[in-house]
Amino acid sequence: MVDYIVEYDYDAVHDDELTIRVGEIIRNVKKLQEEGWLEGELNGRRGMFPDNFVKEIKR
């Protein structure tokens, strides 16, 4: 799994989504079957977030 950095703020709409803020690092990200969404861990919580608000961290 890979990590992503947040490029744009996003406020969660549903309980299974993450609220993300610019500059945060989302860890252990995986792609979901639902197009346009990823799932990852942030601040001890796992949830979904839109893939166009983040950028993969290349290592």
Rank of each mutant, 00 (worst) to 15 (best):
M1T: 08
M1Y: 05
M1E: 07
V2N: 15
Y4L: 04
I5M: 13
V6F: 04
V6K: 03
V6M: 01
V6G: 05
E7G: 06
E7V: 14
E7D: 07
Y8L: 12
Y8V: 10
Y8T: 15
Y8C: 15
Y8S: 14
D9E: 06
D9V: 02
D9N: 07
A12S: 10
A12G: 12
V13K: 11
V13Q: 07
H14G: 13
H14W: 04
D15S: 11
D16C: 15
E17W: 00
E17M: 04
E17G: 06
L18M: 08
L18A: 02
T19F: 01
T19H: 05
I20F: 05
I20C: 07
R21S: 05
R21E: 06
R21C: 07
R21M: 02
V22D: 04
V22P: 12
G23S: 03
G23K: 05
E24P: 00
I25A: 03
I25M: 07
I26Y: 02
R27A: 08
R27F: 09
R27S: 12
N28L: 02
V29L: 03
V29R: 00
V29F: 00
V29H: 03
K30I: 07
K30A: 09
K30S: 10
K30E: 14
K30G: 10
K30P: 00
K30C: 10
K30T: 12
K30M: 14
K30R: 12
K31Q: 12
K31G: 11
K31V: 11
L32I: 08
L32A: 15
Q33W: 04
Q33R: 11
Q33G: 14
Q33H: 11
E34C: 15
E34A: 12
E34N: 14
E34H: 15
E35A: 12
E35K: 14
E35V: 12
G36H: 08
G36Y: 03
W37A: 01
W37I: 04
L38A: 08
L38S: 14
L38N: 03
L38Y: 07
L38C: 09
E39V: 09
E39L: 05
G40P: 00
E41I: 09
E41M: 06
L42R: 03
L42W: 05
L42K: 11
L42I: 14
L42V: 10
L42M: 03
L42Q: 06
N43F: 05
N43M: 05
N43S: 08
R45F: 08
R45T: 11
R45G: 02
R46S: 05
M48R: 15
M48V: 12
M48L: 12
F49V: 12
F49M: 05
P50I: 01
P50V: 00
D51L: 13
D51P: 11
D51R: 13
D51A: 14
N52Y: 08
N52C: 12
N52I: 10
N52L: 13
F53A: 14
F53L: 15
F53V: 14
V54M: 05
V54Q: 12
V54A: 07
V54D: 01
V54N: 05
E56A: 13
I57C: 08
K58A: 13
K58E: 13
R59H: 15
R59F: 09
R59Y: 10
